[in-house]
Simulated scan of single mutants.
Amino acid sequence: MNKVTLKKLVKELNLEVIYGNSYLERTVTKAMSSRPSVEMYCGYFDYFEKDRIQVIGTKELTLFNMLSASQKKERLAKLFSYNSPAFVFTKNVDAPKEFVEAAIACQIPIFKSKLSTSGFIGDLTNYLQSELAQRNKINGSMVEVFGVGVLIEGADGIGKSETVLELLNKGQIMISDDITKIYQPEPGRVVCEAPKERQGFMEIKDLGMIDVKNMYGIGAIRNHKNLQLVVELVKGETSKVTAETFFDTVVPKIQIEVDAGRNVATLVESAALNYRLKQSGYDAEEVYQNRCIHETYKGGE
């Protein structure tokens, strides 16, 4: 099971620690958050999601302030007894002293965010989905071509890195070379990134390691990109494969034959542009077939 420490969460989401600097090594294992308004106001904990980050927004604070002093103490004692990873107050609101006292007693950190409640929950969910997702390593190079995330696959020595190098010379963007890490933060979306030690670097036969950022500029690299199209480089005839599945997400796939006289990088660019056209609803092959049928029909009149 993947985990994220509160220390990393505080840094990435720019949170202020109200209490609990000594407990930032606690971990989060759930990507979703919880807003415990019903639990605090009604004392109903049957469906309390204790393993999640607890977010306290305007609604929760309003309901909390409607309680009597004894009710506040009772509800917070029970709320904190479930040992949730942490509590976060949004809209830059300071935590009431009752919350701080309960946090001290149970040694659970309290943070503060400047964002609105919905904004913070969105950022928190996106971050945790990314960090907690299962990651796999695959052989392939990831590039962004005209805004399209393209994974270039192929056998060793077929020219994947050389194709990426040519694409860089054409102004495209590299995410990873030769080895790519992939993860699925949510069904239907696969993200590719480079292993940390290889970020911004690529290896070319006879040249060795190349620092892409220093050679082509900071705009030539990205940390990650959604996978939208797979291009497999093959020797010999291509097959009719049309898709590849990563986790449980199906991604369109084409094969490009590598042969003398063929500019593979230009073909990859054309494949990316054609993908964009199809996504916008225009299928060149379908338009061509319809035109042929129309012209044949006219010729028979």
Rank of each mutant, 00 (worst) to 15 (best):
T62D: 12
F89Y: 06
A31L: 05
S81Y: 09
E186D: 03
I56W: 00
T125A: 11
A105T: 13
A271Q: 14
V100P: 04
V145S: 03
E197Y: 10
I254S: 07
D248F: 04
A271E: 05
A220S: 15
N223K: 10
E285H: 05
A265P: 02
D206P: 01
I53M: 02
K253T: 07
T180R: 05
K181D: 15
K298W: 09
E60H: 05
F247Q: 01
P85F: 07
K114R: 12
E153T: 14
E285R: 09
Y23M: 11
I221V: 10
G119V: 08
M142A: 06
E39M: 04
G159W: 05
K114S: 11
G140F: 03
L151C: 07
M142Y: 00
I110N: 00
E101I: 09
L9P: 03
G171C: 11
Y19I: 14
R198L: 14
N65W: 07
I104W: 01
V55D: 04
L167T: 04
R291G: 12
D211R: 04
L168K: 04
Y183L: 07
F201T: 06
A105N: 14
I56T: 02
M32T: 13
Y127F: 15
I254V: 13
L67Y: 05
K181Q: 12
S22R: 14
K205A: 11
L151S: 02
P195K: 04
K97A: 13
G20T: 11
I182H: 00
S37G: 15
L115M: 04
K73W: 03
K73M: 08
A103Q: 05
V88F: 02
L229H: 02
V150W: 00
Q129A: 02
N136W: 11
T125V: 13
G217Q: 07
L167R: 04
D123R: 11
T163M: 03
L267P: 03
S113W: 03
T266I: 14
V88K: 02
N274W: 02
K205C: 08
P252H: 01
M40E: 03
G261Y: 09
V191M: 10
V264Q: 06
V250D: 08
S141L: 07
K59I: 09
N136P: 00
L24M: 13
G140V: 10
S239H: 13
C292K: 15
S161G: 08
Y288V: 10
M215H: 12
Y82R: 05
G217F: 06
E232P: 05
M32V: 06
K114Q: 14
G188F: 10
L165Q: 11
R75H: 07
F111E: 05
G140T: 09
D123T: 11
K240Y: 13
V93P: 00
V191D: 00
N274P: 04
E131R: 08
K225N: 00
D211H: 10
I108C: 02
M202C: 03
A86I: 07
I204A: 04
R276E: 11
R198M: 13
Y297F: 15
S68M: 08
V230K: 00
I218N: 08
L165H: 09
V212S: 01
Y47P: 03
E162C: 10
R291H: 15
